[in-house]
Amino acid sequence: MKKTEFITGSFIALTLVVLLGIFFFQALFQPSYEGKVMPVDNVNLKNRVSLHYVLKNVNNASKYLAMHGMRYFNNRSSVPSQTITYGKSKNLEEGSANEVTSIVVNYRGFDTLGEVTVLFISIIGITMLIGGVVEKKWIKPSLIVRTGSKFLFPFILLFGVYIFIHGHLTPGGGFPGGAVIASGFLLLLLGLENYRFNTKASKVIESLAGLTFVCIGLIGLFTKNSFLANFIPTGTVGLLYSAGMVSLIYVVIGIKVGAELSTGVAELKEGNKND
């Protein structure tokens, strides 16, 4: 009874996968027409970020839409007259060179607050479910692994911090930086046999980071009449102290995500014996 159900279910799944594959391959074989595929050859890779930055600048783009209509977005070669150069332009609407960051943190900052809250709730769920699990025995790690993990841990931490501090300049940001920090703590948990992760301290750090995020939003609400509005002056595009609120919020998000994910991994590894 169960076996026939399994076979029919897998057959249906396989046919669905084949149909989806045919669908995707059909889309790949179609000739590309103008306006949908980005012209890669014309873009100089060094100016790529500042070229796209113009499209992101909302006030200019809406002005152009009123003047030229939708033709502006279809034809990439007609970039607006106000060119923005890397390292020279000042006092823009929003000063981050990486346009994904400015959308995630500035224009859709409230959604990011919701995402961080979802992660927090899932970690709380792991902590509640895993309580009372008995710790199993591990094989003792050898000398090479112990020395290597002790030596590599500071560099992995440094790389995570680099990713979220430079989030508004280079690809990356708070979430990848936090995940890299958590993988460093995972290396330490697996490589050293008598390492205990300090769960209480990480919970305190995580709560403080979340509080700071909400406080930055409230300062924006009181000064600019909008929650999470940018209240710090945006400097020159491409410098480290440039994007105003974006870099500040990404540091907070990086610390919060790193503490959350490493708490979850540590509780999954050693069980919850304290409470």
């Binding site: 994904v100 895993i130 979430f175 995940a179 890299v180 958590a182 993988s183």
Partner: peptide, 27 residues
């Protein structure tokens, strides 16, 4: 041409979630 998502996927999908699944299988 989506390096932001690529970094996140490599760190969370290939690194952390594999470890989390392995810990769950151990229990």
């Amino acid at each position: 041409h989506a390096p932001d998502v690529a970094i996140t996927e490599a760190a969370i999908g290939a690194g952390l979630s594999t470890a989390i699944y392995v810990f769950a299988i151990r229990h």
